[in-house]
Design a protein around this nucleic acid. Sequence first.
DNA 1: GACAGTGAGTCAAGCTGCTTTACTTGATGG
DNA 2: CCATCAAGTAAAGCAGCTTGACTCACTGTC
Lengths: 160, 160
Amino acid sequence: MNPVRRDDPLPEAELTFLLGMAFQLVLAEFNDRVAAVGEGDLRPVHGMVFQLLARTPVTSSELAERLGVTKQAAGQIVDDLERRGYVRRDPHPAGGRRKLLVLTDAARAHLAVAGRVLHTLEAELADRQEGATLAPLRTGLAALIRTLTGDDLPPLRPVW
Amino acid sequence: MNPVRRDDPLPEAELTFLLGMAFQLVLAEFNDRVAAVGEGDLRPVHGMVFQLLARTPVTSSELAERLGVTKQAAGQIVDDLERRGYVRRDPHPAGGRRKLLVLTDAARAHLAVAGRVLHTLEAELADRQEGATLAPLRTGLAALIRTLTGDDLPPLRPVW
DNA sequence: GACAGTGAGTCAAGCTGCTTTACTTGATGG
DNA sequence: CCATCAAGTAAAGCAGCTTGACTCACTGTC
């Protein structure tokens, strides 16, 4: 149980600040753990790519939209991932210049590992929070997101 | 009131994802509003600098520590802010090569404006959340931060 | 009172991940 | 045909940081 602190800055902190701090800490911890199991050569954005492609293969322009970057940037990311054997560029069934991005087994393996790490982390966080469950936090966040977006969720991007 | 949606992805989303999304949305909204009142030439990191210097002037090495960057990077940020008239480098009372970074009135004016924008934004968010108050969200975030940090808060940095 | 050590600051170069601009390539409709 | 359009690629540029190497002012030590 956390002892009461004098001069605790957190209760007075802005919501925005709390959000940033919490996100940074959780993501950093996630990164560290992913690196610790030997998957440190992939950044979170690569995980995002894998998650997007896992459901259904898309073209790199669609990927760019989903990531919220230019198609050139998406192309560079794909170049890198292709070079390292995580994705392939297959000819698109609809023809044209399009290419379908498909995941290799290496990518799916990473996705599985990263998913386990993430769930373990969140479970640990829930455990360590003795009294407070994470549920109200989740619903609060979801409500906040809803009020700021309307129906469709924008791409998750670095904003700093 | 938000209608119930079919296939709402939010309840199934990872906590980490919710945090990132919420932070991004709130910060983007804050940025837009700050830009809308004509203060768009300053990024959040500059606001962080101003906040740090407002309490008590520090040297640029201390600033670097607080920001979590190298002292060269802090120096570059200060160069920029000095050029644009937001900070001065005053001789340090303790002598040496040190210089004290002090805010100009322009910086304090920005700080006041940005503070108002931030509080207005958070108040609006609270209002729009009809039933749910933001209080449980704040306490949940604070608890999460506490379990991840121990006593002293690390610098708030881009982590993507 | 020289003199190695220390810590703040600075100069310069390099790197990463993106953007902007400009182009090529294949499909489509008049 | 050919104008047009969308997907993709190529090249250059840029912002914001880092690493490495240095200068300068002060500190102790003998």
